[in-house]
Simulated scan of single mutants.
Amino acid sequence: MPLTMYSLSIPVFARGFSALGRLLDKAEAFAAESGTPLDALFNARLAPDMLPLSGQIQRASDTSKNAIARLTALEVPRFPDDEQSFADLRQRIDKTVAFFETVSPEHLEGSEKREVTLNFPNLKVTFSGDDYLLKFVLPNFYFHLTTAYDILRHKGVPLGKADFIGGLD
Rank of each mutant, 00 (worst) to 15 (best):
F17K: 03
F17N: 02
F17L: 01
S18F: 11
L20I: 13
L20N: 10
L20G: 08
G21I: 09
G21C: 10
R22G: 15
L23S: 00
L24K: 05
L24A: 02
D25L: 01
K26C: 01
A27R: 11
A27L: 01
A27P: 00
A27E: 01
A29M: 11
A29F: 09
F30C: 02
F30K: 07
A32Y: 04
A32S: 13
E33C: 10
S34F: 03
G35F: 01
T36D: 08
T36G: 08
P37M: 03
L38S: 00
L38N: 06
D39F: 04
D39S: 14
D39V: 13
D39I: 11
F42I: 05
N43L: 10
A44I: 02
A44T: 02
A44C: 04
R45N: 06
L46Y: 06
L46W: 09
A47R: 13
A47Q: 14
P48T: 06
D49P: 00
M50A: 09
L51S: 12
L51T: 12
P52Y: 03
P52I: 03
S54T: 11
S54P: 01
S54E: 11
G55H: 06
Q56R: 00
Q56L: 06
Q58A: 12
Q58I: 05
R59N: 14
R59K: 15
T63Y: 01
T63H: 03
T63F: 01
S64T: 15
S64W: 00
K65G: 05
K65N: 10
K65E: 07
K65Y: 07
A67R: 08
A67C: 07
